[in-house]
């Protein structure tokens, strides 16, 4: 217990834990909309596709500052999204194939650029590879400030357009018939989701980022039937896993932070799917048992109620 309290007083730990918590919170909120729009895997595509942007930004601007690299990531993430949408719109190739193709090609381009950078004299590219696996321990105070600013912008946009996002996610055609431009809403929401992915990259890396976008909302959905509670819970689950994962990796030697966070959030998902009241797997098994006994007692199967 002593080591735990000592840990929470440690400055480096505070920084990293705060960063991971912020990541969980932001991706929990935006991930809710991605999951409800059935675009869960877009996050996987965007995060893989961010790699060439990171390296490109480094090559062109020669800077390893987080905001520069993330700007590159944002541009190539958006570019990949455009490609995917373009291929789906103009050919008979389906969304999943376009996604898989574009993300793996972009990732390959990222690798090509990385090996190219290695040959540039006097360039230490160690800071770049952290984007593949993520390295929470390299989070600096200024990274946290950047995350806070982006997070605040994203959260206030969600609050501001709450009504519109809810309507648009539930029933796009109806939203359009009420005069809300679905083109504009789609653009805004997609951009916000991509931004949320990008700011999480340096903590958990491109491969695991998709989990942070999908798992918290999936877990939260099991506990409530209200959108605002789902989004709040999702943010909470994300932040909780961020802190727990960071703490676990600080206390246990040789436990990488990103995977530790993902394992935490996955445990929350499995727990929710099994045990959520009124919806979870166990509740349903119990309900089925109870019904069976009831049928037996009453003899034969009961009439199906009309309402």
């Amino acid at each position: 217990m002593n080591s735990v309290s000592a840990l929470f007083l440690d400055y480096t730990f505070q920084t990293v834990a705060l960063g991971s918590a912020l990541l969980g919170l932001i991706s929990g909120v935006l991930g809710s909309f991605a999951v409800l729009r059935k675009q869960s895997l877009l996050g996987d595509g965007v995060s893989h596709s961010a790699l060439p942007g990171v390296v490109m930004a480094f090559v062109l601007l020669g800077s390893k500052k987080t905001e520069v690299l993330l700007m590159g990531a944002l541009i190539s993430g958006l570019l990949a999204t455009l490609f995917i949408v373009g291929v789906v719109r103009h050919t008979r190739v389906k969304f999943d194939s376009a996604l898989a193709l574009v993300m793996s090609v972009f990732f390959g381009l990222g690798l090509v650029l990385l090996t190219y950078v290695q040959k540039i004299p006097n360039s230490n590219q160690a800071g770049l590879k952290r984007f593949i696996f993520g390295q929470a321990s390299t989070l600096l105070q200024r990274d946290i400030i950047l995350m806070i600013i982006c997070g605040l912008v994203l959260l206030s946009l969600v609050l501001l357009f709450w009504k519109e996002f809810k309507l648009f996610t539930f029933d796009t055609d109806f939203a359009q018939s009420l005069g809300f431009s679905s083109k504009k809403l789609n653009l805004l929401l997609s951009f916000m989701i991509v931004l949320a992915i990008i700011i999480g990259l340096q903590t958990v890396g491109v491969i695991l980022m998709s989990a942070m976008l999908i798992a918290p909302p999936v877990a939260a959905r099991q506990w409530t039937n209200k959108l605002w509670i789902m989004v709040t819970l999702s943010a909470l689950f994300g932040a909780m896993s961020g802190i727990t994962g960071t703490a676990a990796s600080s206390l246990v030697p040789k436990l990488p932070t990103g995977p530790a966070i993902v394992v935490c959030v996955s445990i929350i998902v499995l727990f929710s799917i099994l045990f959520a009241p009124g919806r979870g797997v166990l509740y349903r098994i119990y309900q089925r048992r109870k019904n069976k006994i009831l049928y037996k007692l009453e003899g034969g199967s009961p009439d199906v109620p009309s309402n």
Binding site: V35, K38, Q39, S40, L41, G43, D44, D96, I207, L208, S210, A211, L213, I214, A215, V218, R221, Q222, G258, P259, A260, V262, V263, S266, V269, I273, R279, G280, V281
Partner: peptide, 17 residues
């Protein structure tokens, strides 16, 4: 309880982690 694409996105990051 979750969509198919979300199921993919839950399982593989966990096993990979």
């Amino acid at each position: 309880l979750l969509a198919e694409d979300a199921a993919i996105g839950v399982v593989f990051p966990l096993l990979f982690s």
